[in-house]
Design a binder for these strands. Structure first.
Lengths: 343, 343
DNA sequence: AAATATTTTTGAACCGGTTCAATATACAAA
DNA sequence: TTTGTATATTGAACCGGTTCAAAAATATTT
């Protein structure tokens, strides 16, 4: 038995479709007795008006935009989302968030669902791994569905708002060098994603611009969670040869940095006296931790705001408009986890 | 000038609607030359097929559910969302998250948007403050829109999945008493929301079941963020009279507890030697902090899973089914922030 | 009781797409 | 040239609601 329609209700109640519609929409032209009767039929039939058909005619359906994140429990995205939401709400749009959980398939389904509904446009943190799948993005372009990427995707020209990770990572390492550090390593994050990759490259960059010698062993493959920093840190510092003991660690993000610091505390290695540490993101915990974490602050809310701004400009444009690319600047927040050897 | 429709495209391209539709849907029955021509018209007209009409006929629109949280940047909700998502995905539903930002108005708009689209049902963390507004919830009930609340709302009978905060808070205090503590205070969270209120009540409860004397001054109004714990902690412990110095603090949640610990470290007050602390939620940081936080663990993922389970059961039910209420048990995780005076 | 005003209800067109049987066109074989 | 077949295109019905002018039912006035 299929889902009941307004016609079913009308027939069973012995009234016209128009009357049922009036009841549904709380029109006050309906006689109370008819109203109650129709309502009771609605209940027994378990009728549920189908939104799609409703929106077809009549009132402009509510304006909304979507945001596809890569994972739900990552504070990075929620911070960006806050920025998106603020801007969107100010412009009269509501925001729907969905997560691809790092799956191309999900990303495609979600973009399709957004596009198919009354969601007017989407901000996408694209899944990037070994095999690129960008058909769905092309398909969005084909039908002029407005979208903004939070990371460059090879092979597709689209609006992009991102952070200048390369420059930021380079500067972090330079700062360490200025402070007199020489044996510097990097606890790296996901290497396929461009932000992870850029940070590694920035790390390498700084070496080539200095007199330090780069070497693959200076990249320690870690991950992106607290646990990763903790466990990798424990293992790395437990097995490191005394003559290879690093003077400083640049971490993929703050959470990893905090995890690493927890591990070092357990190993009784003092920060910053024995090892200096730099994080990335400037999450709330970073400044309250003891010692307060020196970290590269990415303007997450700004990022979201900018993306929303471009998206909505595209949604409201009558004609096709030029594609925009923005790379926001990240800034080093100097706190207490880097030792200055010049002093 | 209004948004172009498929008819506009068809006319301008000199073909029928059916052909345009075929192009849109990548049907391989279209001659490449027509295809390209239509596509070019689509581009110049900036045509965007309207999903609502598409879903009306043909393929069943994708299954999805919604989750309305109270705030985006609260790890509590993202943890619950992870549980919701896992269950939903396993059942073939995608999840959309939206935030009411603690506004009744937004909550109403969002429920309406969910209901009006092809989102089959919603899990709602209801906004609860002084003035109750539940018209939209009634409206959902009226049209049999399936939904599950994450907190009891006075005046409405609906599916509810929540945590037994009262019992948990009571047990936390009892544990402190067993450990020999007597002067115990509570850093409280939002008092209108039932979970905040229940924790306060649980705190009070434990007193009445013991020989301790309850007193309004034992409740310190704090908040729910790290910053709140830090600042309230700083102020409170700075101004407290020596004879009123508490032996233990039960915090509204973990983040507040960590903030408080950061403040105490700054004041050189030792935890747990001078003050014992209990948190609430068991977030990831709790177990890695030093000292590791003793806290009441709420099964957040479980909570989400249970809510999703009930929701989907309701969505897939052919006829009206009974309303369910569940209160999940929270558990005390004993770590290092409570001093046992019996030892 | 008739005329008029008001409240309710309805029929039919409409929204913007999809679908598919039927038709038109192109292309190869007889 | 005619016939057969594969390929392209289309007309018209349809999806499940909304809308509104017009008709029907009630209520009020004269």
């Amino acid at each position: 038995m299929k889902r009941p329609t307004i016609t079913d209700v009308a027939e069973k109640a012995g009234v016209s479709k128009a009357t049922v519609s009036a009841v549904i929409n709380d029109r006050d032209t309906v006689k109370p007795s008819t109203r109650d009767h129709v309502l009771s039929i609605i209940k027994t039939l378990n009728f549920q008006p189908k939104g799609q058909a409703r929106g077809l005619r009549g009132r402009t359906s509510g304006r909304s935009i979507g945001f596809i994140v890569r994972e739900l429990d990552n504070p990075f995205y929620t911070a960006v989302a806050v920025g998106v939401k603020k801007y969107a709400n100010a412009k009269g749009y509501t925001l729907f968030i969905a997560s691809s959980e790092r799956s191309h398939g999900n990303e495609e389904i979600l973009t399709r669902q957004f596009a198919a509904q009354e969601v007017k446009g989407a901000i996408i943190a694209p899944v990037i791994d070994g095999n690129t799948e960008i058909d769905h993005l092309f398909s969005l372009k084909k039908f002029n569905y407005p979208f903004v990427l939070l990371e460059e995707v090879a092979g597709i020209r689209a609006n992009v708002v991102s952070v200048d990770n390369l420059r930021a990572a380079t500067e972090a390492v330079k700062y360490l060098i200025e402070c007199g550090h020489s044996r510097i390593v990097h606890f790296s994050g996901p290497e396929f994603a461009s932000h992870g990759f850029e940070r590694i490259n920035g790390f390498r960059n700084a070496f080539s611009e200095s007199q330090l010698v780069y070497n693959e062993n200076l990249i320690i493959h870690c991950g992106s969670h607290f646990k990763d920093g903790f466990e990798t840190g424990l293992e790395y510092f437990n097995n490191i040869l005394p003559d290879q003991f690093p003077m400083a660690v640049v971490c993929y993000n703050d959470v990893v940095a905090l995890g690493l610091m927890a591990a070092l505390r357990k190993l009784a290695v003092k920060v910053p006296d024995q090892v200096s540490i730099i994080g990335y993101d400037d999450i709330e915990f970073a400044r309250y931790w003891s010692p307060a974490l020196t970290t590269i602050g990415t303007p997450l809310e700004e990022l979201g705001k900018k993306a929303a701004e471009i998206l909505i400009r595209n949604i409201e444009a009558k004609t096709a408009i030029t594609i925009e690319t923005h790379a926001l600047k990240a800034m080093l927040h100097i706190r207490e986890t880097v030792l200055d050897l010049n002093k």
